[in-house]
Structure formats: structure tokens, C-alpha cells
Design a protein around this nucleic acid. Structure first.
Lengths: 343, 343
DNA sequence: TCGATTTGTCGAAGCGCTTCAACACGGTAC
DNA sequence: GTACCGTGTTGAAGCGCTTCGACAAATCGA
């Protein structure tokens, strides 16, 4: 492997000059610059990441704490984390980090001390923690490690850390307002399984709050049906609600994995969308689009949130960013799956 | 941050002694060892990863090339990579790497030169590349970079690199043998979309080869139906085959995402499993188990393959591992979704 | 024309660790 | 008693880079 000295020798300059060409921290004459660049190209030189980290005290690595949806060893999926959504975040984070010259380190240990290991060992410059729960133990560990950290999700007590998340409360309001505006007086939210609520994933609580408050003030009847993703589970959970004489005229589905099952259940009853029932999905665009029927949806811009998290991490490293919480605003894309109730 | 010198001073020994306590490369007296360990604990010392990498020429980082299933910027899923399967691999890789003291670096660039960047910059000690296609350009790039690399998947020309994969050909043989043994004379494989075949993902080609050869020698009629995952697509793709008078009595489904749709389509026809039709899934256990009906399946041990890849990478770094190809053997778990055809 | 800036380059001092040669010391062997 | 060995420890030399202060040369204002 060629070193910076090799390059310097070949270009007939000092090593420090090469360094400055690379970093742009001092002005360099065009002549020198091109000689150095030529030498770099000829030798196929790549600076040694470790040496760089040692000398500059910056690693150019961003650590990403990902909850592994399946416990290692077992094959059971953790039902409260949707793999597709997870990937959407990663798809937003990785390229954005790369474009700023950062590599992404995957940290999957559920042990909260992993954060300290990464930070204290100068393995990464900052951490992004995904899928933060209301009472997530990682939050405190991150704060204690005193390292630039961004949370995706909203803990009860951020311990002074910055957070990004989708504005689920607003999404809930939006959905109800849209449907109530069309004349719906009875709305049901089909939500994540009960365990998600028990785990205190705040997003679930927030969207419910948004919906129920708006419903109340609009005089709309509202209830929540938590469900597992499997079709039989969905059918069973929904039956009591859909069988009622006074059944809801609109469904708001906030459970990516259950979406196909919900549509199937409606189809089994020969209910047309939106003729017999209106449906709004709360999901990343790619998922809403992939359904059998195009669904009007409140799009969770997971990729954009991921990218934002990276930007906030960069800001935090620069010492800017007084701890802030950014809630990315909801917007409803109408794909024609809602209409005034026929009654 | 405490340095090794701080620890040495506190323990009253030389820095090199601390280093040897940490690495175990020289014998240390029990007294000294415990004094050093105490100092480490008191100071909360963590060795600086960069300094370590510089001095020892080893980073203790494993790079993982993951094809991002969704192109950044767009929201379209690449249909040939199943997110769930991807995650299964990661779930096998990350903990195994960690247990050997390695961190995992996520490399999502599709640019083949990413490998060189990572290697030449001494950012990682080895690379594992996932979802390798028959004619994957990354293969040659990896080989050229002359770095320890393991491929998950089977390229046409491994360029001397080691590979791990599931023995899909064997899986195909196994499935047909099992069904033929029960008396089935007409089997259809429901496979990944046509684009997967076009992309020359070798797994698809291999399982087809295994099935068709065994079918031929067992006198069984066999055909392949590629399909997209969505329910309407599946219904449409399967219709010509299932509507035939002489319809198949068994389906082998090798397409994780389409599995639920296939079951739905059968249910719509009021066909019972296995009474009216036998079904075998080829999928990771977690996915086979999650279906509405428990499915007999040939289990793709994605986690185990991931772990194996890590072990092979470690061996390759030690300079062992003459380039080898390991195919992990298939086994069929009977969950009662196959039976002799009723005819 | 001369001092004051600015511009471009260099040399050297570390960053925190690993590792090698060297050595002190008590125990064995003769 | 001397010679030798193994054990446990040390000091110093880098690993490849960044960055700071210094400095020569070019540019400027008056």
C-alpha cells in the first residue's frame, strides 16, 4: 500500500503538502495540486483510515444502532419492528452519510453499553439510534457517553439528545380531518399489535392521540383495533367491529405488515373501496403503492427522516445543534381510496 | 479519554505491559495483571481503535456489502432482493462477527470500486458480499483488490474467491423426491419474477435445475411459473396452470414475498392444503412459520449461512482458506402441507 | 524603493497503540 | 561457583497521518 510519503516523493513535494491537497485546508498552487493528484492516481493511493483517525481525532464513521428484528439464534421476528420500514431508514441514512464522506458502522448489540464501547474506543464520531421506545434504556446510555447522538423516535425523556421522527400526532389529525370532511362519522384505526403499545413505542401512542382528539372535537366515533399481521388474526380482530350494525365507514391502517391482510378481509366481504368503505394507509410510499389496490395514504417519509438524522448528526458533531426535536410533517396523498359514505 | 499511558502510570507498569495484558501475547504475572485490570476499570479505559489499527495493521472491522433493496431517492423496491431474507443474513453475520471481536461496516454503494476504497484505506480487514449474481461485477473488483473476501451466492466465475450459499440444487431434488414419493406426477414451481432470472441470480437457476432433472428421471411433469409478489399478479400467473384440466397436484413455492398471495389464491379456489393440493415452501424458517397455514418447507438457513460466511472470512484473514465453495445442505421439515394426491 | 502582507510550501512534533530486542532475576544444571 | 535458561517486564522505535509554526517568495501600498 502506498503511503502519503510515497505520493509526496513521487510528486516532489512534502507530505504535508499532499495532506493539504487532500483536505483543502490550505491553499495550494494549481501546479502543485495537479502534480500531487497525478501521483495519487498513479499510485492508487488511499489514505489509511486508522492513521487519519489517530492524527485528526475524527473517524468519519457514523454508528447506526439497529434493533435486530429477529433475536439471533431464534427465528422469531420481533413483531414491533417492521423490516421494510427499517430498511427504508437505512436507505435514507447510508447514502446520505456516504455523500458526506462518512461510512456507516452497524451496531446490533441490544446491550446499551455498546454505545460506550463505540464512542470510548473512538470507533465512530456519532451515533444514530433507530426505533427508540418511550422508555428506551439506550437513551440514557447514549446521553451518559456524552457523544453526539440522534434518536429516531421519541423517548419520554430524551436526556438532552436530539430526536427526529414522523409527526404521527399530526398524521392522526390529518387522517380524521380528511375523513370527517367527507362525512364519515365512524372511523376505526387498525393498529399494530398490542405488544407494540405495551412496549411503549411512542409512535403508536401519538397517532392515537391525534386521531382521538380530532374525532372528539369533530363529533366522530373513533376506536382502535390492534392486530397481528396474519390474515386470520386480522379477520378475527376486525370481525367484532365490522359486523356491527353501525359499522365504521372508514379505516385508517397504521400497520404496514397487516395492510395486505386488511385488504383481503374487505375483499372477502365483497366490500368495494371506496364505495363500501374508505381506507387510508399510514405507511412509507413504497409500501402503500405496492398494495393490490392503490391506497390513499399518509406517507411516512422514512428515507427522508433517515437523511435528516444524518444531517442532524453532522450538525451535532460540529457542535451546533442545541438539542432539538424535529417532527417531520405529514401529508396525505389521495389515491382514491376514500369517498363520502354512501348511507 | 484515558490512554494506555494513563493506565500504565496508574498501575505502576510500562505501557507495553498494559498492551500485553490486553492482547495476551506475552505471559503476565497474576499480580501485575490484576493491578492493570483494576486500573483499566477505574479509568474506564477503551483502546483507541485508530491507533490500534495503525500500529497493528488490523482494524477488527468486517465490511458487509449489502445491496440496498430500494434505490435511494426513489421508493421502488428492487424486486429480486427480499428484505426479510436480507435481514436474516445480517442477523447471522453481525452477532457472529461481534463474538469474534469484529465490528460490521455497512457498504451500500453499488459502485464496485467501493470494495477497493474500503480495502485500500484499511477501513476493514475483510469483506462479505451478499446477494451475488452469476455475472456480478463486484466479484472481479473484489478479486482485484486482493483482499480477503467471501461471497454469499454463487457467481459464474468466483475469480478465486470463497463462496457460501444454500445448496439450492439439492433443495430442488429434495422437494421433487419428496413429492414424487407421495405419488405426485405433476409439480409446478412458483418462482421469483422473471427479472430475477434475467439478472442471473444463480439460486433461481440452480433450484430449477435440481427440480427439473429429478422430475425428468422420476417421470414427473414439471414447469416453472415466475411471478411478482402481489396477489393479483400471482392469481394471474397461476391461472393458466391451475385452470388446466390436468392441473398440478403440488406446488413448490420459492418466493418468500409471494407466499401469502399463493395461499390466498388457493383459498379463493376453496382448495384445501394438502387435501386438494400439496404445497412446499423454500424459505427461511421464520417466514415459513409465519404463514396462515403451517407449511412443510425446505428451510433456507440464512442465519447459519451468514455465520458461516463470517467464519470463512476469519479463516481467509488468517491466510488459511484456500478458496473454497461451501454449499449448505437442504433439509425438509414436514409440517403437514403435503399428502398423496387424491385422484 | 522599502517594509508589510499574503501565498505556497516545508519540517517536525505528535496522535495512542503494538511489537521487538533487551534485560533483570530467580531457578537449574553442572 | 559459574553457566545457562525461562519468566516477566521494560524502553524505544515505528505505524501513516494531520497540523502548527516557520519561512521563502511573490504581491502590495505608499
Amino acid at each position: 500500500m502506498a503511503t502519503i510519503d510515497d505520493v509526496a516523493r513521487r510528486a516532489g513535494v512534502a507530505a504535508s503538502t499532499v495532506s493539504y491537497v487532500l483536505s483543502g485546508k490550505r491553499s495550494i498552487s494549481p501546479t502543485t495540486r495537479s502534480r500531487v493528484e497525478a501521483a495519487i492516481a498513479e499510485l492508487g493511493y488511499h489514505p489509511h483510515a486508522g492513521a487519519r483517525a489517530l492524527a485528526s481525532a475524527r473517524t468519519n464513521v457514523l454508528a447506526l444502532m439497529v434493533p435486530l428484528p429477529m433475536a439471533p439464534g431464534t427465528s422469531t421476528l420481533r413483531p414491533d419492528v417492521d423490516v421494510n420500514v427499517l430498511m427504508q431508514f437505512v436507505a435514507g441514512i447510508a447514502p446520505r452519510a456516504r455523500s458526506q464522506g462518512y461510512d456507516v458502522l452497524l451496531v446490533t448489540d441490544d446491550d446499551p453499553s455498546a454505545a460506550e464501547r463505540v464512542w470510548a474506543g473512538s470507533t465512530a464520531d456519532a451515533i444514530i439510534a433507530m426505533s427508540v421506545q418511550a422508555d428506551d434504556p439506550r437513551t440514557e446510555a447514549l446521553a451518559r457517553a456524552k457523544m453526539p447522538a440522534i434518536l429516531i423516535g421519541l423517548p419520554e425523556d430524551p436526556h438532552g439528545l436530539s430526536c427526529v421522527d414522523f409527526d404521527f400526532e399530526n398524521a392522526g389529525r390529518l387522517a380524521v380531518r380528511h375523513l370527517a370532511g367527507q362525512g364519515h362519522r365512524h372511523i376505526v384505526m387498525v393498529g399494530p399489535p398490542a405488544t407494540t403499545f405495551e412496549r411503549r413505542m411512542s409512535f403508536a401512542e401519538r397517532i392515537v392521540r391525534g386521531m382521538s382528539e380530532t374525532s372528539a372535537s369533530a363529533g366522530v366515533e373513533f376506536s382502535v383495533v390492534p392486530t397481528a399481521a396474519r390474515r386470520d388474526a386480522v379477520a378475527e380482530s376486525l370481525a367484532p367491529v365490522l359486523d356491527r350494525e353501525d359499522r365504521p365507514t372508514a379505516l385508517v391502517v397504521h400497520h404496514e405488515a397487516a395492510l395486505p391482510s386488511v385488504l383481503d378481509v374487505l375483499r372477502d366481504r365483497d366490500w368495494r373501496i371506496p364505495g363500501d368503505i374508505s381506507v387510508v394507509a399510514v405507511a412509507p410510499p413504497s409500501i402503500a403503492e405496492q398494495q393490490a389496490a392503490p391506497l390513499s395514504s399518509i406517507e411516512v417519509p422514512a428515507q427522508a427522516i433517515g437523511a435528516t438524522a444524518v444531517d442532524m448528526a453532522m450538525a451535532a458533531m460540529r457542535g451546533e445543534g442545541t438539542s432539538e426535536t424535529r417532527l417531520v410533517r405529514a401529508s396525505l396523498t389521495n389515491r382514491g381510496s376514500t369517498a363520502s359514505p354512501s348511507s
